[in-house]
Nucleic acid binder design. Structure first.
Lengths: 144, 144
DNA sequence: CAGCATCCTACCAGATACTG
DNA sequence: CAGTATCTGGTAGGATGCTG
């Protein structure tokens, strides 16, 4: 379990000041991370955070690339987790508006940083990929 | 757990103007988000960030729940993106050590905030789920 | 317009076995 | 120990067609 019981065989190199390896992560936090670490969730939270309130179709247009099904599914999931609120107006034609909940609002900052980081470091990552693909023999550059 | 590399203060970008016209994220950022928004990537980056340097087996124990295959695959992917460095020592038995690259180091702060947020808001999310599951008729509470 | 239901496919990801 | 290779079931997720 704890790697602090280091076998004497392993040479301690470069004096790791961070010996405390097994931070338990609180077990279930992993679960939440999986939610946030969903392909579309972060995207949707970001878009909704920027736009404030959007209807289904608008959202779909903003998140372009997402299928109608995945948008529905993801929104349901986010709604269930209390991150997105859903307001339905039974008019004709129907109108449904989505927005972030206060809970999700506290995520906005982090998500924003994530997006900024992504945009800022895209070139670096592209470079790393190119370098890796070049030096690794039989690696098919299949987008990941 | 302390995220020492980054001040906990979230630089809220000023003026979240609620305009409906939303610029599409530069949209390759989405690609990077998908990488970060991978189930295991954040976890591994976090663990590696805390531990500094870990061998394959140590990592596997730390990220408990991950299969050997997924650890290999995810590490490869992270390595390809220049987020994780891999040092192999062709001894017997073999030893391979993983660590974050400087690039990934700049992600540590954000990932740390994400983890903290997850842990802090787990109860809220649990509550929201319970509430949702209770009020929605035929919803099978199948964990997601 | 906003969705649900259905079908169908591809890939994700675990288990197992084998190698250097 | 640190992988690779292979098989396989589960599910993510797209396409389509239909309702209120």
């Amino acid at each position: 379990m704890s790697i602090t019981s280091t076998p004497p065989v392993v040479p301690q190199r470069a004096a790791p000041q961070l010996t405390r390896a097994h931070e338990p992560l609180g077990c279930r936090a992993h679960e939440v991370l999986a939610r946030v670490g969903d392909k579309w969730s972060v995207y949707i939270i970001h878009v909704l955070g920027e736009a404030g309130t959007l209807r289904f179709g608008e959202l779909k247009r903003c998140v372009e690339g997402i299928s109608q099904r995945m948008l529905t599914v993801t929104l349901r999931s986010l709604e269930r987790d209390g991150l997105v609120s859903r307001a339905m107006y039974p008019e004709m034609p129907p109108r449904v508006e989505y927005a972030l909940t206060p809970l999700a609002m506290t995520l906005r900052g982090i998500v924003g940083q994530l997006v900024e980081w992504s945009q800022a470091n895209l070139p670096a990552i592209d470079g790393a990929r190119a370098r890796y693909d070049a030096q690794v023999p039989g690696w098919a550059p299949a987008e990941d």
